[in-house]
Design a protein around this nucleic acid. Sequence first.
DNA 1: CTTCTTATTGCAACTATTCGCAATAACCTT
DNA 2: AAGGTTATTGCGAATAGTTGCAATAAGAAG
Lengths: 151, 151
Amino acid sequence: MPVMSVDFANKLHSEGYRLTPQRQLILEAVRKAGGHLTPDQVYARVHTRHPAISRATIYRTLDFLCEMRLAVAMQWDGQTYYEIAGEQPHHHLICRTCGGIEPLAPGLVDSFVEAVSRKQRFTIDMDHIALFGLCERCRVGKSASSRHSSR
Amino acid sequence: MPVMSVDFANKLHSEGYRLTPQRQLILEAVRKAGGHLTPDQVYARVHTRHPAISRATIYRTLDFLCEMRLAVAMQWDGQTYYEIAGEQPHHHLICRTCGGIEPLAPGLVDSFVEAVSRKQRFTIDMDHIALFGLCERCRVGKSASSRHSSR
DNA sequence: CTTCTTATTGCAACTATTCGCAATAACCTT
DNA sequence: AAGGTTATTGCGAATAGTTGCAATAAGAAG
C-alpha cells in the first residue's frame, strides 16, 4: 500500500467512492510514468506488484480517474493514452503527415475558451486536447507521398 | 451499382486507389444517413443490399474514407461515429452533465485556427471537433448529482 | 477483348474492451 | 472491535475492432 495523497482519499470519500489498493496502484503507476500510457502498459506495471488485478479493473479505474478529473485520456493513432491531469492543462498539435507532436500555446487556447464562454455561454473543459493538422515543415515540403499511413 | 460522383472516382484513381462497389455502397450509406452513424449501423444498412460484405471491410473503408477526408470520425460516449465531411466543417459542444449537444459557432473556431497559424505556424485541420464542458443550464443549476455517469 | 499487376475483399483467428454477477472488502455505525 | 451496507473487484462470457493471408477483381497495358 503506497503512501497516497490525502487529497485523493478525501476527494473520493466526499463523493461516496472508496479508496482501494487497486486505485492507489493504478494512479501511482500513471503518475510515476510521467508520460502517456496505454491501458495495457498500465496493466503490465501494476500487475508486477499486484498479480491478481484484472484487466477489467484497469479499464474501469482509468475511466474512473478521468471522471474524477485526475487523469485525462487522449486518442492518438488508434490507441487511447492516459496521463495525469497536470495543474495547467496542456494541449498538443499533431502533424498528420510526419506524426510530430508539438505543444500548443496555452494563451491561444485560453482566448478561444473565453470567447466561447462569452459569446455562446458554454464553459469548455479544456483538460487536454489533441488537434491534427500540418506542421510548418510538412506544409512547406508539400510533396511527400502519403499513402495509407496511420494505425 | 449506384451512380457515384465522378469526383470520388477521380480522387481515388489519382492516388492509386481503386473504386469498388463496397466503397461506393458505404460512402453512399453514410451520405444518405445524413447524421452520424456507428460502424455497426453502416454495416446493417449496407448489408441489406450487399449481404456478402464483411464487417472488416466496413471498418477498413470507414477508416479509408477518413484518410481521404471524405468522412470524419468522432468519439462520443465510448462510440465512434462517422459522417460525411461537409463543405464547411462544423463542431459540437457536448455537455458533460446533461449530454446535450449544441453547435459551436464557426467564426470562433476560425479565429482560433487563424491565431494558431499566425503565432505557431501550425495549420490545424478543423474537420470536426467535439469539445466537452458545461452548458449554461447545467452550469447554473450546479447541484445535480453526477455519480458514475457516462458509458 | 485478354492478360497482368496488385489493391481490395472475405474469412477466420486474434486482440482489445465491456459487461453481468457473485464474492469481497471499504467505510460507516454502534 | 464487530456488524451492516453497498461500492468495487475478479471472473468469465460477450462484444467490438484488427490483422494475416489467400482469393478476387479493378484498372492499366497490349
